[in-house]
């Protein structure tokens, strides 16, 4: 039961954290259409997170609700991939308030959407019927996210000299973080053994193919993926998650049980 809940929280935290990150473009998009697109993607992600938190809360029982899970857990409790909490710029900028780089946003959304398109498709067969239902809905949404990010990856990669260089730099920066996808956490292993979750190793060939096809079309080179393997899904995060949660949770913590 605990690993079942932990698995749901991993999926929910991924959706919430990336939803919150992408929402930072709201009102600051490079063009109006992209501003709206990123807001729409965030809306889908936060909607998916809500369904998953509601399910996890139901399993945990007691006073736990979707809101206590989203707003009253701390950095070490979150189980999202480190990739999703990083700011919208390369590794050398000082903090999250630095200039946002759209290539970083697009490359991250592409790498994650490609994974989730495969994962949601497989999770439709989950033994947890509620999770299977959430997967069926989320799959319809992630297909649009994948189309959007892949299309922009091509435009940036196969665009101007400047956009190409920035897309390649974003890829070089983010690609090593995807190593975390392929090493199962305890919750993932237990969930997949119980028929609730999916062993991501089985999806890796398809993910590699989707990524390689897109990079070829985008005239980008697949970056090396060695070095430190991030541990976000085990609760060990980068320094950036605390700032993200600080902003996201401040209102709920200043006014507990507030309604409007």
């Amino acid at each position: 039961m605990t690993s079942h809940v932990d698995y749901l929280l991993h999926l929910a935290d991924n959706a919430l954290v990336l939803g919150q990150r992408n929402a930072e473009w709201c009102g600051h998009g490079p063009i109006l259409e992209e501003d709206i697109a990123l807001a729409n993607v965030s809306l889908d992600l936060i909607g998916q997170a809500r369904m998953l938190y509601q399910l996890a809360a139901q399993l945990k029982g007691g006073a736990v609700t979707e809101d206590t899970l989203a707003y009253f857990r701390d950095v070490g409790d979150f189980r999202n991939y480190t990739l999703l909490e990083l700011p919208h710029h390369g590794s050398l900028a000082a903090n999250a308030a630095a200039d946002h780089d759209y290539a970083t946003t697009i490359v991250r959304n592409f790498l994650y959407s490609a994974l989730m398109a495969l994962l949601w498709e497989a999770l439709q067969e989950s033994r947890d019927e509620q999770l299977a239902a959430i997967a069926a809905k989320s799959l319809k949404e992630v297909r649009y996210h994948l189309r959007h990010s892949r299309d922009w990856l091509l435009r940036l990669g196969d665009g101007t000299e400047e956009s190409h260089a920035r897309a390649q730099a974003a890829l070089d920066h983010l690609m090593p973080y995807t190593q975390e996808f392929w090493i199962s956490s305890q919750a993932e292993s237990a969930a997949s053994a119980a028929g609730i979750g999916v062993d991501l190793q089985n999806l890796k060939t398809d993910w590699d193919r989707m990524v390689d096809d897109a990079l070829l079309e985008a005239t980008l080179n697949r970056s090396k993926t060695d070095g430190y393997v991030p541990q976000g899904k085990n609760g060990l995060h980068s320094e950036h998650l605390g700032y993200l949660l600080g902003e996201m949770q401040s209102l709920a913590r200043a006014h507990p049980n507030g309604c409007w």
Binding site: A117, L118, E121, L139, K140, R143, L146, R147, R150, D151, L154, D206, R209, M210, D213
Partner: peptide, 12 residues
Amino acid sequence: TAAATSVVRFMA
């Protein structure tokens, strides 16, 4: 119709 197509082939 929104009939499902394989994700791997779902491209722009």
